[in-house]
Structure formats: structure tokens, C-alpha cells
Design a protein around this nucleic acid. Structure first.
Lengths: 200, 200
DNA sequence: ACACATACCGACCGATCGGTATGTAATTGA
DNA sequence: TCAATTACATACCGATCGGTCGGTATGTGT
């Protein structure tokens, strides 16, 4: 076990992400996180000045990349048709595993818990959310230019609605502890997106 | 200040509801709640066997009635047209005040925090949610019989989607700290409901 | 080889948590 | 009127919280 500070730091971040995903930030215990890594307080406070700094680092270095993998990159190099790229994304979202339904979306969980309590958390989380919204709005605008959705659709508001409905689907299915509820809600979201197509 | 046990109990419930709405259940401090009421531990543990029992009582005796006022009763004695009763409800939802956007929906907040952690909380919260869903499904079915929405619409899934989108709207606007975002999302939800009408 | 910074350990701190035990004043039923 | 019960107050408990601090290895530049 030689000293590899960047690996140690990454190890703490991974354990912290898991703990925060399960327990939320405030209930997450630094002692628990360290127990999961086999490290001690000394190591932790060498790499992070405070628990809050750890939380912000988890957001920037663990949660934000997750969104990149799930949403941003699939939209960037998706199929040529913008609208079907979005529908593909929603379909893939339906295949979320049981743990995601049980524990919920890490971004949504932290937003719910921390946005009203701490402006720094709100800003870091909001940056991720707004990145998602910008990507989605841009996609809808491309689809609109291509004639895939009607000209009277407000793409920005529409993107907002899609994100909200998605997060709401995770939330409700988390409470009802039902993957079926999540799939049904996401299917309904797909029919909403379909309803944006021009009337034939 | 004579002894009025039921008033004392109600006072604790009110303070607990406010504290839990701000801080969540786990971060809510019994000591803080008591400080807000001017009472002490002795009074609290005389009326409630534990903090968890207090939380469940807040759900049943404070949060559930809220849903009754906002959703159930307006739907029961709303306008004769089922669909416009729903649209009225969504329109009234838009007029949520700033604190609701800042702190979020008490039901949604607790669901997010506690559903995965405690089965009792999940059950009590789920009962409220399912009451909401049943009322909404019944309304949509009435509207369907009346020909206000298309025959091919699955009313149960549709009700699920409306609730999910609503909760998602609260969640997203809470993070973006924007009433405008909430109003826009709710407006989009109204257009979704409108899209259920028969094609003319 | 030696000085020095980095990386980490582990004991300890005050504060706060939910909960308990004991005591006492008010209310009530007989 | 007087015990008995209810309705509180107060002092205290062990556990756990985030955070600090002195000490100790492990590199690393010179």
C-alpha cells in the first residue's frame, strides 16, 4: 500500500458519492465514508478542507460526469434525426436499474435536499441542470428547423417540461417503489414528445 | 397559560411541520421544535413516543389535510366539466407562493428523503399519493365517458404522468429558484392535458 | 546524506442528537 | 376533600456529529 494521493482522493470521492446517494448529504457521515475506504480523519482533512467541500467535489467530479455519459454525449453523437435521438434517450432512460429507482437520481436528490439550504450547492447543481436544459433546447430547435416538430412549439419551455417530468417520474416511482410506474411515466413522456410532431 | 393538552399537541405538530418543511425530517431537531413552542422534552415525550411517531403524525394530520384542501375537494365540488375542473386545478397550482417554490412541496420533500429509508414513512406518504392518483384517474375516466378526452387514452397512466410532471415542476423550479420556471412548466402541463381532447 | 514538504494516522474536542428518569404542579373522579 | 392520574419541567445519558491537532511515516529536491 504505497502512497498515491490522487488515488486516495478518488477513493474518498467514490465512497462519498455512494454514501451521499444513499443517505443524502447532511445525513452522510464522514466517519462512515472513511470506514468504507479504510482511511482516517487525517487523510480526509488533508485532501478536503471540509465536508461541504467534499460535497461540492462529488457534484463536480462524480455527478456531472454521470450526466455527460447519460445525456450530453448520446445527444451529441446520436442519430441524425434530432427527435429520434431524444426518443432514444427517453427509451434508454426507461431501462434504469432497480437501484436507480430505489435511491433516485443523485442530481435530483441533492437538488431537493440542498437547493434551499445552501447557495453554493444550488449553484453547482444548477449548472448541471442548466447544461442539460441547454442541450435539450438546442436539440429541439434543430428538430424544429428540420420540420420534425411544429413551428408553434416553445422549445425552451418544452425542454424544461421534459426535464421536470423526467425528474418527477423518478421521484414518484421512488415513493411507490415501482419500476413499472417509472416505465409507464416515461412512456407517457414519449407520447408527449411525439405530440410535438406536425399534424399530418 | 392553563393546561390544554390537545392544544399543546397541535402546537407541537404545527412547529414540527414547519421545521420538517424547512429542514427535512432527519435534520429536524426535536429541541428546535420545542424551542419554537416554548415547551420542553417532558411535554413532547408525553404526547409522542418518539421522533418518528411525530413525523408520521405530521404526515397524517398536517400534510394529508393539505392535499385535501388543494386537490381532493376542488375536484369533488368543481365545475361540471371534468376536464375544466382539472385545468382549473392546474391553473390554481400556478399561483403557488414564493415560499412553496423555495421550500418545495412538503409531500414531495418527505417522499424524496424518507421513502427509501423507512417503510412506515413510505407507506403513509404513499397513501396520500395514491389518494391523489385515484381522484385524478376517476376524474379522467369521467371526462373520457363524457367525450372530453379521447377513448384511446389510458387514464391511470395519464394521471400518473400528471402527478409526476407536477412534482417535477416543483423540484426543478426549486433548484432554479424561479417562480417563472414553475409557471412555464405548469402551463406546459396544461397544454399536455389539452392534447388529450378528441381531434376535431 | 540530509532537510523538508507531503501524506496519513489516531486521539481528542465541544456541540448536538434522540431519548430517559425523576420530580412537581394542575386536573379530575369518587 | 383527597388520592390518582394527567400534563408538563428539568437534569442528565450515551452516541455521534464535524473538525482539530500533534505525531509519524514516506517520498523528493539538493
Amino acid at each position: 500500500m504505497s502512497r498515491q494521493p490522487d488515488i486516495t482522493r478518488a477513493c474518498i470521492l467514490d465512497a462519498a458519492f455512494a454514501e451521499i446517494h444513499r443517505e443524502g448529504f447532511r445525513a452522510a457521515s464522514v466517519a462512515n465514508i472513511l470506514a468504507a475506504t479504510g482511511l482516517t480523519k487525517g487523510a480526509f482533512y488533508h485532501h478536503f478542507p471540509s465536508k461541504k467541500a467534499l460535497g461540492l467535489a462529488v457534484i463536480d467530479e462524480r455527478i456531472a460526469p454521470l450526466l455527460d455519459d447519460w445525456v450530453v454525449r448520446p445527444l451529441d453523437d446520436g442519430p441524425p434525426s434530432s427527435l429520434s435521438a431524444l426518443l432514444d434517450l427517453l427509451e434508454r432512460g426507461r431501462s434504469a436499474d432497480a437501484s436507480a429507482i430505489n435511491l433516485g437520481c443523485p442530481l435530483n436528490n441533492l437538488m431537493q435536499e440542498m437547493s434551499a439550504l445552501d447557495e453554493d450547492f444550488r449553484a453547482h447543481l444548477g449548472a448541471i441542470l442548466e447544461c442539460w436544459l441547454r442541450k435539450l433546447t438546442a436539440l429541439l430547435l434543430r428538430a424544429q428547423v428540420a420540420g420534425e416538430i411544429r413551428a408553434d412549439v416553445d422549445c425552451e419551455v418544452c425542454a424544461l417540461f421534459i426535464v421536470a417530468a423526467w425528474e418527477g417520474a423518478v421521484s414518484v416511482s421512488k415513493n411507490l417503489q415501482s419500476a413499472a410506474v417509472f416505465h409507464a411515466t416515461m412512456a407517457q413522456l414519449r407520447t408527449y414528445v411525439e405530440s410535438l410532431r406536425p399534424r399530418r
